[in-house]
Design a protein around this nucleic acid. Structure first.
Lengths: 250, 250
DNA sequence: TATCTTACCTTGGTCAGACCAGAATACATA
DNA sequence: TATGTATTCTGGTCTGACCAAGGTAAGATA
């Protein structure tokens, strides 16, 4: 009954097809009358009830899909999902990719995320996190001479730190920027390897971060992490000076 | 020519219609061959070129629309947009509606952003930033007795701080979370006002943040900001304890 | 009777072609 | 040259259809 009323109001309400259907579903989702795990009625029926064609309904469902609100399972049905923050990944990828010359700016966000995450990690990390960090650290040492795998090991360590912070939001944000940072990193990493002191810096810094986390010292952990970034920035600057022109063609 | 090659690869690539089209457009967008302001070719032509039907293409375009990447203008065409933050508010709305625990987690991200931003602000803030901060501070004092405008003034001050950091990325991220945090803030703010000491805390803390920025002391600025959040968290906790049941009906 | 097969129905995935209304544009006219 | 009109183009939507595979229940088998 309740539903019928809403649908009646839906037909009257402004909006062109897609808009009204999307708004309708959005309301139902937000109001909680559709809860995670629920299965929507078949597309054909739903389309009929909403007074739109199936393609239009599917546009709306697809829109909700990219928002992570529902999941369309082939030959099964449309299931309401508990949205996880991973959909932000898509968005940030787009958002950041288009302002491509702002890598340095994105770096500020990465620093923000990691400094907070390492604090949380120092408080919340479990024994398994310690193990994972230890492994990542080992891998950094092992791959110290290789640019490719070395870069990956570096990122992996930092990612492990963030995950040890147990904040899904921070993890997602961090992952979101990893893509572009990774890309920019790839283009400069050869340069970095020319410095021999780099190796020491890479290994020692990460070990100190690890120690601070294991030592349950958030304050110190952040301090070390911040220094780590500062030194990295310094290396990068020095490398840039050696480089003739930092402009890449798009 | 280049395009043809990609399209050929597209046809071969796995994925079911929608998936491949979405992935294709995504690549073009990310790669930068499609830039903000560009108008896509007509749906009919694009669908034909991609080897899918128009409804499927529209599903993909709709998906990109909710991500804020493109804008479908009726009877005009599909225009590539530079994604703005409003999309994120949509998302956080959904995420929040179904699990209120996210708030606490998002708060960690806000702390991360602001602590980094306040550091940058201490380094980069201009005289006009100082003025804006001063104004925001004044407004906090003026609205100290009103829950509604007081909350806004509070947020405005923090937003001003982030903007003074001159990092576009941090501003974007911060704005993204403002929506959801604002909403949660609204529901608890009455509770906070019961403490008289709150007023002192609110005014003094913000003034100390302001002073640290003006004093060009990043280290201290972050410290004060962090303490500010810690105390706020403490107030919130105490308020929660005073409350009988923190569960809200959905 | 209990279990295994199999045929059928449902459901999402996709397509083709069509119609509409309004924006954009070209063109004819004053 | 300026203006108004006709045509084309574009998104918005609908209809009806076909496919492939998951679910299910009737029927076959042990």
């Amino acid at each position: 009954m309740n539903v019928d009323l809403e649908i009646t109001r839906l037909r009257e309400s402004g909006g062109k097809g897609f808009e009204k259907v999307f708004a309708f579903l959005r309301e139902r989702l937000l109001a909680g009358s559709l809860r995670p795990g629920d299965r929507l009625i078949p597309e054909r029926d739903l389309a009929a009830q909403l007074g739109v064609s199936r393609p239009i309904l599917r546009e709306a469902l697809r829109a909700l899909t990219v928002l992570g609100v529902v999941e369309i399972r082939d030959r099964v049905g449309t299931i309401v999902r508990r949205p996880d923050l991973s959909v932000l990944n898509d968005f940030f990828t787009f958002a950041f990719a288009q302002q491509s010359e702002v890598i340095d700016d994105v770096m500020q966000a990465r620093i923000a995320i990691e400094c907070q995450a390492v604090r949380l990690a120092a408080e919340r990390a479990t024994v398994s996190d310690f193990e994972r960090l230890q492994q990542a650290l080992t891998r950094i040492v092992e791959t110290i001479d290789d640019a490719d795998t070395g870069g990956e090991a570096d990122f992996e360590f930092h990612r492990t730190v963030v995950m040890a912070g147990k904040s899904e939001t921070l993890v997602v944000l961090h992952d979101s920027m990893s893509g572009i940072l990774m890309r920019s990193h790839r283009s400069r990493r050869e340069l970095l390897q020319v410095f021999d002191t780099m190796k020491v810096y890479l290994i020692e810094d990460h070990r100190r971060i690890f120690d601070a986390i294991v030592g349950r010292d958030p304050e110190h952990a952040e301090k070390v992490m911040r220094e780590h970034f500062a030194i990295g920035e310094d290396f990068r600057r020095r490398a840039a000076i050696g480089e003739s022109g930092p402009r890449h063609a798009p």
